[in-house]
Computed example of a mutant assay.
Amino acid sequence: MRRPLGAAGGEHGHAVPVSERKERKQVLLRLDPAVYEALARWAGDELRSANAQIEFLLRKALADAGRLPPATGPLPRRGRPPKQPPQG
């Protein structure tokens, strides 16, 4: 059984108003296949996608070099939310 489509359409689980969503830049990145495979394995070890691993490493390098803009928000959290202990 399918749930009814929300305001965001069928490709998204939850509707997020455009004013609350920050646009993300898309870039084409060409990597040596061996570098990509190593990156993908590393990302898998840390339960991230290759894209999230690249962003994580770029942010870390920028922060280490003192070049991370102060207005940069935290990395978006992906996946299932953490379980909450029962209250009572």
Rank of each mutant, 00 (worst) to 15 (best):
P70N: 04
L68K: 01
F56M: 10
P70C: 02
P82W: 01
P74R: 07
G79C: 06
P76N: 10
P82A: 09
V27G: 05
L75Y: 07
G66K: 04
R24Q: 14
K83Y: 14
F56H: 14
A50I: 00
Q84V: 13
W42T: 07
Q53T: 12
E46D: 08
T72N: 04
A50V: 04
R24Y: 02
R30D: 07
A15C: 05
R24W: 04
A50Q: 02
L28H: 15
K60D: 11
A65D: 14
A71Y: 11
R3L: 12
D45S: 08
L39K: 00
A15H: 15
Q53G: 07
I54W: 00
G79D: 05
K60A: 12
G79W: 04
L57M: 13
A50D: 01
K83E: 15
G6E: 03
R21Q: 08
A43H: 01
N51R: 06
E20Q: 12
P17N: 06
R41A: 13
A63W: 08
G73V: 06
E20A: 11
A71W: 11
R67E: 12
S19Q: 09
E23K: 14
H12K: 13
A34N: 12
P85S: 13
P33A: 13
R77I: 07
D32Q: 08
G9D: 02
P74K: 03
E37V: 08
L28A: 15
G79F: 03
S49T: 15
R67W: 03
V16T: 15
E37N: 07
A50E: 01
G13D: 10
G13N: 10
Q87W: 05
A8C: 03
S49E: 06
K83L: 14
P17G: 08
A8Q: 10
Y36D: 02
G73T: 13
L29D: 01
L5V: 13
P70A: 12
R77A: 15
R24M: 12
G13S: 10
L58V: 14
G66E: 06
L62E: 05
L47N: 14
G10A: 15
H14N: 08
R78Y: 12
G66A: 05
P81W: 03
G10T: 05
G13M: 03
I54S: 00
Q84I: 10
V35Y: 02
G6A: 09
E23M: 09
R48H: 09
A65V: 05
R78T: 14
R21C: 02
V35L: 14
S19T: 07
P4N: 11
D32G: 01
R77M: 09
A63K: 12
A7D: 13
V27W: 09
T72I: 01
K25E: 14
N51C: 09
H14G: 04
L31W: 05
G79Q: 10
M1I: 07
R48V: 06
A15F: 13
L75I: 08
L5E: 14
L5S: 14
L57Q: 12
R78K: 14
P17T: 04
R78H: 14
R21T: 05
A7S: 12
D45M: 08
E20T: 05
A61H: 10
R59D: 03
L47H: 15
T72P: 03
R41C: 05
E55Y: 00
A50H: 00
K22L: 11
E23S: 15
L28F: 15
L29I: 10
R59M: 03
G88V: 07
A61K: 11
L39E: 00
V18M: 12
S49Y: 01
D32H: 10
